[in-house]
Nucleic acid binder design. Structure first.
Lengths: 338, 338
DNA sequence: TTGAAAGCGGTACCAG
DNA sequence: CTGGTACCGCTTTCAA
């Protein structure tokens, strides 16, 4: 807990010089600069957080609201939290946790007390209550995920439509003429924002490319292995030679099970692409081509957006989409010549 | 972002009166007190975090170090984070996240900058590197979990030995004479601190109670379904009428599978108790008697300890064990009369 | 029971 | 290129 005046004394300069030498906010001669840095290092100096928050108007803290609800996929969620923390630290920011029960109370509180410079919103729901709060407070807020009503707020997410098109193009280019999209449970298409968009984007692109296409959901509310089996069976019976997957890890596993059971080999008898998977697909028993939803990418961009808005509170808000990336794992090949 | 002077003006009192009226640190007439509270509420006043940290010497922030590594059981981990956040909020504290890569750097940084009042350590390993750091810094640090070398540090955890004894007593009281402990994978008994203790406590208590007992591990490094099946089979062949389980969710599920396959009914043909499960056992296909490891209990106690140490930095450190609680779900009954 | 004012440890402006 | 110093907003003595 060394203080700035101790560093100043040790370096034989004034405290303002120490401040400037360390922040780099005004030119300092290389010599003094070194003396200051040395002294600071030697004393283990770090500016007092409270003093910095008071004097500067910057806290160097982001709040992270995360619902932590039961239905949240824990591993995925953890990756996002970790990615957010890493991205924040790269800019000398720390992460303050706001859990669900405090979503509203917490966002208001950190704003009123000036505890944080910006708020990052995780695990965004289509009708997320935090949208209203974000509009009501002055603290810059960035959503990682896109709610239905996103007027006037900053959002970051994967470009799902582009991802869907990329997947269709890939199998079309490989020569497939009949494809099937294996999707999420029924209810998801009513409750969530993106599954319907992916579905439509796939259908539209398939039409453009002249591909025959089918679509199937995989359960009612949660993924059901039986429903997946049926969906895969129907797709194959309809003559599909390529499957596009959009869903959780369980669904992927069930698809691979169903395919394997039939003695069909992925990457030769059938081609598969996973769209927007947010889990670690390399843990699946068979490696799949993937257009992943990458937590690091989303969080990096979110942090950049937050910093930009802190810098200029009046810059226009908007949705920022991440370009999809295709990860080839050999699960797409030319269709078997019939 | 109303300030204290605005509240003072609105209430017609001095700044210091506002401070005292809100903190309750000195007697204020009921009348002025109400006026102040009203004004503060009306203006949405919250003390500026930076100013409070500077002037008082209290940040109202706890750091939470969490490794977030791959082998961590994500759902369990999330429960602990949530429990810590809730416990902290009850005392007007927020949680600042320190992820793995920053474990050392972060703990030093928050200490040097006075960003937090105390540090909570999650997901403690037997040879945890954070022990050394905790000793080197002045910030009060509480471990949720007990490392091998815990000299001079504060730790909180379930009393595993007591839990083991409780489990043995329960089945012994129910009339069982031969029991089996189904444990963790081999490597865990070398790498981790508590599995061996549970094993020994079960064995000792069983001896005291005159019970025949066996023990089996369930894999090499990770839980293997086959190993579980074998372990269960051996136990039954040896005539065990009660099983004690100490392991992860997968192991529990595998045990229930193995038992069910044999047409044996839990709670009548065989009795089962789960010891120190940190996951949600109610999600298992069959409800089991449990002596759970409760995140809320651990975190509440950890926060209390942290506050106590902030209050008195010189109080003696030590291990604080939580008394085990038996949750009856009907899976223990008298052994079938042969 | 209340008020005035001295810091807390930085930042950044104003000088030089 | 460097130094002096007026705040930042609150807590907490010291006085009344």
């Amino acid at each position: 807990m060394a203080r700035i005046d101790e560093v100043a004394a040790a370096a034989g300069v004034s405290i303002s010089t120490v401040s400037y030498a360390l922040s780099g906010k005004r030119p300092i001669s290389p010599d003094t600069r070194r003396r200051v840095v040395d002294a600071a290092h030697r004393l283990g100096y770090a500016p007092n957080a409270g003093a910095r928050m008071l004097a500067g108007r910057v806290t160097h803290i982001f709040a992270l609201t995360e619902p932590l609800r039961r239905e949240t996929h824990a591993p995925t969620h953890m990756s996002f939290v970790l990615a957010a923390a890493v991205a924040a630290r790269r800019h000398d920011y720390d992460i303050l946790l706001l859990t669900d029960q405090q979503a509203s109370e917490g966002m208001h509180r950190v704003t009123a007390s000036g505890l944080v410079d910006a708020i990052l919103v995780l695990d965004v729901a289509p009708d997320d209550e935090r949208v209203a709060i974000a509009r009501a407070i002055t603290t810059p807020t960035v959503f990682i995920g896109i709610p239905d009503d996103h007027e006037g707020i900053d959002c970051v997410d994967l470009d799902f439509e582009a991802a869907a098109r990329l997947a269709v193009d890939r199998v079309a280019d490989a020569g497939h003429r009949r494809i099937a999209l294996i999707g999420q449970p029924e209810s998801t298409y009513r409750l969530s924002n993106f599954p319907p968009r992916v579905r439509r984007a796939v259908a539209d692109r398939a039409d453009e490319r002249g591909l025959a296409h089918t679509f199937a959901t995989t359960g009612e509310v949660v993924t059901e292995a039986d429903a997946v089996r049926t969906a895969v069976g129907d797709a194959l019976d309809a003559g599909a030679s390529a499957l596009l997957l959009h869903g959780v890890d369980d669904m992927h596993a069930a698809v691979l099970d169903a395919v394997t059971e039939r003695g069909i080999r992925v990457g030769s008898d059938i081609s598969i692409v996973s769209i927007a998977a947010s889990f670690d697909t390399t843990k699946l028993p068979i490696q799949l081509d993937t257009i992943p939803l990458i937590p690091e990418a989303s969080c990096d961009l979110a942090v950049d957006l937050a910093l930009a808005r802190i810098d200029d509170p009046h810059r226009p808000t908007g949705i920022h989409l991440l370009a999809p990336v295709y990860r080839d794992a050999g699960s797409v090949t030319a269709p078997p010549s019939v």
